[in-house]
């Protein structure tokens, strides 16, 4: 730990205010997603805990607010704060899981394209190009409406959208690495292609992936929120943040703004924090920008 505190990485981190702010936000949200359910009094999906009498209570600082419900309640008497805490867990899970899936698939395809070149490269990268020429929302929307909804379907759709970024990044780094003499040295040593990719190429293309992955989690959370808002995302029994916004949206124009505004604000700060931290990582880990 002392080694980390005296490292160059930490030296730069300490001098980067947005990075500190971003990581502080992320830390809060992480703690909340892990320990939140212990802190809020109500489980919003346990019907026995809901009081219909308490529906549409405004936040506590407005007239008619109830100290039990800090950010107010929705039409079923669910605590908005508790909903956010539970929804954040679902959103975070989807973001992270989609990141892992697309990282795995995209990295593999990128390595194959970059290392072997030729036909494999052409085919993989042309598919990627075609996919990039559609808005990612459109692709996800199409897949969701064709194959149905549910968390697993959301994951498949996000992976289908997200692998391209990984494949392109990895292919680029791979092309750079395989020019280097240590790859030739491995060949002279007698290593086969698969061994060279596994032992030499992969470890050396990982660094940019850390940056991409951070930013991708934010993007995935946003896309998932949009899908859910459009009604093709997660089922109503597992409401993510996006779905909360949508539910609140129905009553927004009758003056009950808090049910959609707070989850919306929460998404914004979450993605903002992720992006701030991701930008710092990019500047720090990319030697070309230093």
């Amino acid at each position: 730990m002392t080694r980390f505190l005296s490292s160059e990485f930490f030296y730069h981190y300490r001098r980067n205010l947005p990075a500190i702010f971003g990581s502080a936000l992320l830390l809060c949200f992480t703690l909340m997603a892990i320990f939140g359910p212990l802190l809020v009094a109500q489980d919003p999906y346990d019907v026995t805990q809901l009081e219909l009498m308490d529906s549409f209570k405004p936040p506590v600082w407005l007239e008619g607010g109830d100290p039990r419900y800090l950010l107010g309640t929705d039409g079923q008497g669910r605590d908005v704060l508790a909903s956010i805490v539970y929804g954040a867990r679902i959103s975070a899970f989807i973001g992270l899981a989609a990141m892992l899936c697309s990282c795995l698939i995209g990295t593999t395809l990128g390595l194959v394209a970059g290392y072997y070149g030729g036909l494999a490269d052409s085919v993989i990268m042309r598919i990627a190009d075609i996919q990039l020429s559609f808005p990612s929302m459109l692709i996800a929307l199409f897949l969701m409406s064709a194959f149905g909804t549910g968390i697993d379907m959301v994951l498949i759709a996000l992976t289908a959208v997200g692998w391209v970024v990984y494949a392109r990044t990895v292919r680029g780094s791979t092309l750079g690495e395989i020019q280097k003499e240590y790859i030739q040295a491995a060949r002279v040593a007698g290593l086969g292609n698969v061994a060279i990719i596994r032992k030499h190429v992969l470890p050396n293309v990982l660094t940019p992936l850390i940056v991409v992955s951070t930013i991708q989690v934010g993007t995935f959370i946003l896309i998932e929120a949009s899908l859910s808002f459009l009604g093709v995302g997660v089922p109503i029994t597992q409401p993510s943040l996006g779905l909360l916004v949508k539910e609140g949206f129905d009553v927004l124009f009758s003056g009950i703004w808090w049910t959609s505004a707070f989850p919306g604000l929460f998404i914004m700060f979450l993605v903002f924090g992720i992006n701030l931290f991701g930008d710092f990582l990019r500047d720090e880990l990319n030697p070309r920008l230093r």
């Binding site: 280097k180 003499e181 240590y182 030739q184 040295a185 491995a186 002279v188 032992k199 030499h200 470890p203 050396n204």
Partner: peptide
């Protein structure tokens, strides 16, 4: 074989 560039011919990882 021995290579030219002492910086690129060893895997940094």
């Amino acid at each position: 074989m021995i290579f030219q560039d002492p910086y690129a011919s060893l895997d940094p990882r």
